[in-house]
Design a protein around this nucleic acid. Sequence first.
DNA 1: CAGAATCCACCGCGATACTG
DNA 2: CAGTATCGCGGTGGATTCTG
Lengths: 120, 120
Amino acid sequence: MTQPLDPAMFHECRDGVMPLQIGDKWTARIIRCLEDGPRRFSELRIPLRGITPKVLTESLRAMERDGFVRHTAYAEMPRRAEYELTALGRTLLEPMEACCEWSRRHLPAFLDARESWSGS
Amino acid sequence: MTQPLDPAMFHECRDGVMPLQIGDKWTARIIRCLEDGPRRFSELRIPLRGITPKVLTESLRAMERDGFVRHTAYAEMPRRAEYELTALGRTLLEPMEACCEWSRRHLPAFLDARESWSGS
DNA sequence: CAGAATCCACCGCGATACTG
DNA sequence: CAGTATCGCGGTGGATTCTG
């Protein structure tokens, strides 16, 4: 869940190395799911095929801690919970979009490289 | 070393999830070190403080396999090796720069969020 | 100098079961 | 429904030693 902010990474960000703390398996996906508005816990589990409730909880807690997500729990029965991106969380969509743009443009070349590698 | 390209990730890139395969600990740093031209093995080890020769080798091999780096070995004594970014490797600088720009702008807010979290 | 070979610690993530 | 509690595997990355 991208836990400790590597101190080296921190001072390196000045030098141009990206300390974007969303490099784990789920965080970026979760951000995408929250892009269009608040979602409930069980709503998130559907597009995030196969995610375990434990891992989803851990991820959301980490994102809360980092200021990317706001968590609202309603004391109803049955319970209800809502998660939504904060303003800071939304700013992550920019670099994510840059990465997606890279994929659209260069993923074929990337896959070709891997392909011809096995034949080496 | 960001080994298997998660097939899910692959088809998700259409949906906007970034499959940028440089999310491990060293790849982005190595790219930065190669940004200004070819570098030798031992030259890379200096700015990459603490990297083990084993890990550096593994990382460079993976980057070679993915088409990001070109490796040239000279049969001299003592040996010499040079690593340089390919054209494809250079294209990674764009999304990396977007991530760095995010850091410059939002890292303070990010750190504040973590700070006030411990007091919660 | 440029690695290769071993061994090992950590932890991210998954599987499963349980609860208010 | 929205989680928590255990358990455990696999893989990344570090430490150390050795070699042409």
